[in-house]
Each structure stands twice: as C-alpha cells, then as structure tokens.
Amino acid sequence: MNKVVSGADEAIRDIEDGMTLMLGGFGMCGLPEKCILALVKKGVKDLTCISNNAGVDDFGIGLLLHQHQVKKMISSYVGENAEFERQLLSGELEVELIPQGTLATRCMAAGYGMPAIFTPAGIGTEVAEGKEIRNFNGKDYLMEMAFDADFAIVKAWKGDRLGNLIYRSTARNFNPVMAMAGKITIAEVEELVEPGELDPDNIHTPGIYVHRIFKGENYEKRIEQRTVRKRD
C-alpha cells in the first residue's frame, strides 16, 4: 500500500468545480498551504469551503477568495479577512457562520459515521432558525447534521506512506476531525517517513482515514499575531 503522491498538484488533480472541501487549520496555524496554492493555480471555482476561518487577504483561503473561486464558505470566524467581509456584505459570497464547536463536531460526526449531533450552541439565536430542537433532561439542543465533504485537506507534522499522521502543538486543531470526515482525504506533511518510524501509540490520525499524502517543501507557516514579551 502506498498513498504517496508527488505533490500538491497531483493530490488535488480530481478536485472539480462545485465540490465541497474541508480545509484544516485555525487561522494560519496548521493550514494546508501547499494544497491551497495548488487550488489557486488550478483555478477550480464554485467551491464550498468548510474551514474555521477564511484566511487573510494574501494567504490561505484568502487567496481562493481573491480569485473568486469560492461560492460558499462555512466558517465560525472570519474577522481577519477584509476581502471576505466585503464579498459577504456585498452578497457576492454565500456564507454560513456556525459555532466553532458545532463546526468541529459536525466533522467529527462524519468521521464517526453518525448522521447528526445535538448541541446547545445556538439555542435562542438565529443559528437555530429552521433546525430541529430536542429537549433532553430539561435542556434544549439543536440537531446539527454531519458534514458531507468531497475532499478533506489537512496539514500534519509527520506522516508515513500508509497515511498515519502526527500533528504538532496547536497546529492540530481541526485537522484530525477533518481528516476523518472527507470522502477523500489529502494530507500534506512536513516530514514523510517510512512505516515503523512513527510510534503506533502516538498516531493522531490512523492511516485508514487518509487516501493521499505528500511532503510539502518550505512551509511558510505565517504568524498572524506575533506577540512576545521582553526578557527581564
């Protein structure tokens, strides 16, 4: 079994106009930046993108937005991207803003083979409009459906050619739950190793969920808010 592809272009070769993609990452952190660049180059359009954020104007999903490749964004927070806010307020872009935990758990449900989840997030707000509400033990919960994505694209720190993945620090974020949730899952990694080199006890995403893997070169890993303290 060998899931290794030559690079981002080959990994995304059959992503077509109108498809639904999950993209891992929290802000710029743990973002599959190589595949996003390849999608920009390929020029596929009318995409529905499920991702916690929408990138910044010149990096991440912001690049896809800039090229008008995105028809619909499903995100929880988009405050960092002025072009996004402009397209949203002008009606050029369809946007579904959903609670962050709901976003993560709808991914998780897909990966666990469960059709729906019940969450209290959004009860009494516009998020609840048109959704089924169930009362359990005296508290109201919204029924939220598992996502159905054609592709999940994630970024990991290390992976082997069987698709087993390990993430690093808070770059883990949405990546493991999205990796489980795609019909086809693409993983880009900083280090690609041979089976046996990763400790089975420390695998975050078992390879069964991953269909294609490649090593990305020269990660930019942009920092969104560089905050530091002075040495005393």
């Binding site: 929880s76 927070y77 988009v78 405050g79 946007v95 803003l97 962050q100 935990g101 998020v127």
Partner: peptide, 10 residues
C-alpha cells in the same frame, strides 16, 4: 460587522 461567533456560542 460580520466577524462570526467563533467559539462564543458554544
């Protein structure tokens, strides 16, 4: 202003 709820609703 439409920035989104992030994790606040949860």
């Amino acid at each position: 202003m439409v920035k989104g709820m992030g994790g606040a609703m949860d």
